[in-house]
């Protein structure tokens, strides 16, 4: 056993144990770690956004050349003030205008890119069947084609799920169940890998039991 001498490792190990204590029941150690992480994450987010976006893209350009090539950034300042009006009851109109501008720009960007990447490209990837090469690839592509059509049929509610539509919807629901099973296993495995990582940290970095 070779205990760590770095105080940071001790702090990290103690906080890890504080969080693991929740497995017994909710307790003050876990609550402390929980509130600590919220505060640290808030401070971390503030600093990251300040140092990487707000300072280099607004404050510094305005400070250097606020009346010249960066004059348009004063509009950002005005919009920031309009957002801050969220907390002023008499200035809710300004806040709503800033919110509307924000939503409109995001939705305007979202619509064509979603149509292209998430609908048309997905449909193209499904119907462009590649029936060449290894038999597993051919079988897989057929499964992909039939599975996607059947799963879409399962979500189609304008026609009763009877006859051919009903059969396709049933195959679709089975395909979706296979997908959910695979997704579930991925979630479980990722959590177990994290757990192994934390136990490994405690045993190697803190206690020095394993190499």
């Amino acid at each position: 056993m070779n205990l760590a001498s770095d105080p940071y490792v001790w702090v990290a190990a103690i906080l890890t144990l504080c969080v693991f204590s929740f497995l017994y029941k909710d307790n003050p150690f876990f609550c402390f770690a929980e509130h600590l992480v919220v505060g640290l994450a808030a401070g971390y987010t503030f600093c990251t956004y300040w140092q990487t976006i707000f300072l280099p893209e607004l404050i510094t350009p305005l400070w250097q050349d606020g009346m010249g090539s960066h004059a348009h950034l004063w509009i950002s300042v005005v919009i920031c003030f309009m957002w801050a009006c969220k907390y002023i009851d008499r200035a809710q109109d300004l806040f709503r205008c800033a919110l509307a501008f924000w939503i409109a720009v995001d939705l305007g960007l979202f619509l064509p890119t979603t149509m292209s990447a998430r609908v048309l490209e997905q449909i193209a990837g499904t119907v462009n069947l590649r029936l060449q090469g290894d038999w597993t690839v051919i079988l897989g592509n057929l499964v992909l084609f039939v599975g996607t059509i059947a799963s879409l049929t399962y979500f189609y509610f304008s026609k009763a799920h009877k006859g051919v539509v009903g059969a396709a919807a049933r195959v679709g629901s089975w395909t979706i169940m296979v997908g959910f099973g695979a997704t579930f296993s991925y979630v479980v495995l990722s959590r177990i890998y994290l757990l192994i990582g934390r136990v490994h940290f405690l045993m190697r970095d803190w206690l020095g039991i394993v190499e």
């Binding site: 939503i103 409109a104 939705l107 305007g108 979202f110 619509l111 979603t114 149509m115 998430r118 609908v119 997905q122 449909i123 990837g125 499904t126 897989g140 592509n141 499964v143 992909l144 084609f145 039939v146 599975g147 996607t148 059947a150 799963s151 879409l152 399962y154 979500f155 679709g172 395909t175 979706i176 296979v178 997908g179 959910f180 099973g181 695979a182 997704t183």
Partner: peptide, 29 residues
């Protein structure tokens, strides 16, 4: 399983949710 049936299910869900989100976006705009 991960490459084919899982992709088929995810693709159908993605197409469905995207069409739904787009219709909400159009109604909002």
């Amino acid at each position: 399983i991960v490459s084919y049936p899982n992709t088929a299910a995810k693709r159908a869900i993605l197409i469905g949710t995207s069409l739904g989100a787009m219709s909400v976006a159009i109604k909002t705009i």
